[in-house]
């Protein structure tokens, strides 16, 4: 067992973990932050995406020990200070960017990374950046619209298919 310490959503989080403990297991089981989902557990689906030192990573494919000392942001850290939804989260609600909602935490975290690097992405850029996030409901169209809207862009030009 090893002792790990990291900052999660601005608070110091410590715990005892095995070498094989995944970051997502540490977040969900040690810290009770169950907003981060495990979809495929094979790094295909992206439901487990969190930010580690400002970068989106699949927390099912990183060990908790590797995040020792890191700054981690999860979906629980995306709400505004007063507990209301953050801009991207609100856009997902407004544009019906979720159906069953299972992929949503990863979609929001990935979208946040994209918008941090590219504040006004094109539709094609959004779709390319979401390559590692799978929505089993196949609700991509409204996810893309929500991210366009969250970036302050007009979404009327994105035709329904």
């Amino acid at each position: 067992m090893s002792q790990v310490s990291m900052t999660v959503n601005g608070k110091v989080a410590t715990g005892e973990v095995e070498g094989r403990t995944l970051l997502v297991e540490f977040l969900r089981e040690n810290l009770g932050l169950t907003g981060t989902h495990v979809g495929c557990d094979t790094s295909q689906c992206g439901a487990c995406v969190v930010h580690v030192n400002g970068r989106d990573v699949k927390s099912c494919t990183m060990f908790a020990v590797e995040a020792d000392g890191a700054e981690v942001i999860t979906i629980e850290g995306m709400a505004a200070e007063d507990g209301t939804l953050g801009t991207i989260q609100q856009a997902f609600q407004d544009y019906h960017g979720l159906q069953c909602g299972f992929c949503t935490p990863g979609m929001v975290m990935t979208a946040a990374s994209l918008l941090a690097a590219n504040p006004k992405p094109s539709e094609a850029e959004i779709r390319a950046y979401l390559e590692g996030n799978i929505c089993r409901c196949t609700g991509y169209h409204n996810i893309v619209r929500a991210i366009m809207a969250a970036s302050g862009q007009d979404v009327s030009g994105i035709a329904a298919e």
């Binding site: 790094s43 970068r55 989106d56 990573v57 494919t61 990935t110 990374s113 950046y129 590692g132």
Partner: peptide, 9 residues
Amino acid sequence: IGDPAVRNR
């Protein structure tokens, strides 16, 4: 290579 999250690791 892969997808953005994979490229970050």
